[in-house]
Design a protein around this nucleic acid. Structure first.
Lengths: 247, 247
DNA sequence: CGCCGGGTTGAATTATCTCAACCTGGGTGG
DNA sequence: CCACCCAGGTTGAGATAATTCAACCCGGCG
């Protein structure tokens, strides 16, 4: 759990990319976090990204994956959402934090303190470019929750899996983490199962079916969306990109 | 589709009740909407609450129920969330609107223009009581989406149904629409099915099972939560109330 | 009167789950 | 340096929750 100041401001690069890509925020409107005490925190996998001393800390996920999850009384787990690099946690800009779902690191992860960014956002007028851009990000988060609901409620395991993979890919590309037609999927099938609302065994079989059908390739943690267009059709996937551009 | 000025400001009463109950907003901090051009719009059931002329209008649901829903290419429908009296639609305070899920009236409904309220909120400092209270409401909305995900992903039909009924009840009580241990459920079983992610037939059977088990009573549109505590245990229900008080 | 939306029931079908076994590769301790 | 150990992946087979299809009922309404 070492802590060091951000040497270059690049820790927030994935966040900045999304702000630029989705909300057209220009470099000059990007906040300068270099001298704002941005420190990083390294966490091993499986650890909960705790609120320090009961207080919610605004943080930015710099690297690794995490998940917001709820565990039922009998141990069943549902992943409510994935937290990817460039995502914010405990960031009480638009809503207060409720301790309903715990955020857990799925891989080794590094976090940066985002209180400087939070203060900056709070000081903005609602018409300011940065404030506007943050509202676009918030809309994206809500969209992904709605995606999740639709997948779980009305899609088959095959469709759900395609849909989730497409969403993860879009998010990683938006953040500039990935650029090609695939991505690194650093989680176990158990994690996917708990996100997709199906059993591990069925997750395994579904992934294999997608492979056999030539829609994806999956070797270790390297996933390729071989037939992206077809996957989009199967999953009825609506991209954030298209919704923002269309509006 | 008649339009009339709000005679008393009471149109926003359900909203005000929630602000008071959840965020401790006092009457003196409540916005005065009486002379702010608050007009109402009456809609029949099944009509979409459209964005007029492609523009998103901030509105307040005054009476009736609506639903945000997504319809897949082959006609399957998933209700992403219920809109109850006191809820806001098209209210672009914290996030921009994305046309992912259409909002449809489930019963005859009346809406009021909420642009005055939106302007007022936007003029607030982030520490102002009203701004703070709106962040609490936003947290509630997010919680109900998380509830929805958990229900659909990891609960049985029996548990899901219990959970949803508890949530609807809590929301109606918070808005001051209902006060007892039950509420008026003005929707068809098909609507419930599309919210719960199960078939109509199975929804029917599940409701009957809950009745047979003496947990609920359902006559026409009148629903009673006979054994509320038991339902909470079955559904592993976490109330918004308890989360806010506990924090 | 007759129709129709919504609720109810039965019976066959299917998607998914559970249980259980087995395999593999990487890491660890003796 | 080898043996084992364990997490994670894979496969088979029986069990079950939920679906689909179909029929029927009821009350309200044109």
């Amino acid at each position: 759990m070492n802590a060091a100041p951000d040497p270059s401001g690049s820790l927030a690069e994935p966040l900045f990319r999304r702000l630029a890509a989705l909300a057209g925020l220009s470099r000059k409107d990007m906040p300068d976090l270099r001298r704002a005490g941005t420190r990083t925190l390294a966490l091993p996998a499986r650890v909960e990204i705790a609120e320090v001393a009961g207080r919610v800390q605004p943080r930015l996920l710099v690297s690794g994956w995490a998940a917001r999850q709820r565990v039922l009384a009998d141990g069943r787990r549902q992943i409510v959402g994935f937290v990817l690099p460039g995502d914010l946690v405990g960031f009480e800009l638009h809503r207060i934090h409720l301790p309903y779902a715990a955020t857990q690191a799925l891989t080794p992860a590094t976090l940066a303190d985002a209180s400087a960014l939070l203060d900056l956002c709070r000081a903005q007028d609602h018409r300011a470019p940065l404030a506007r851009a943050m509202r676009v990000l918030a809309a994206g988060e809500e969209l992904f929750l709605a995606h999740h609901v639709t997948r779980l409620g009305r899609q088959t395991a095959y469709e759900r899996t395609s849909h989730l993979l497409l969403e993860l890919h879009e998010r990683l590309v938006l953040a500039g983490i990935e650029t090609g037609d695939g991505f690194t999927l650093p989680v176990t099938q158990e994690v996917l199962a708990d996100a997709l609302g199906i059993s591990v065994v069925h997750t395994n079989r579904t992934l294999q079916q997608l492979r056999r059908d030539g829609l994806i390739r999956l070797a270790g943690t390297t996933l390729t969306l071989v037939e992206r267009a077809e996957l989009v059709a199967i999953a009825d996937y609506v991209s954030l990109r298209s919704l923002i551009d269309g509006a």
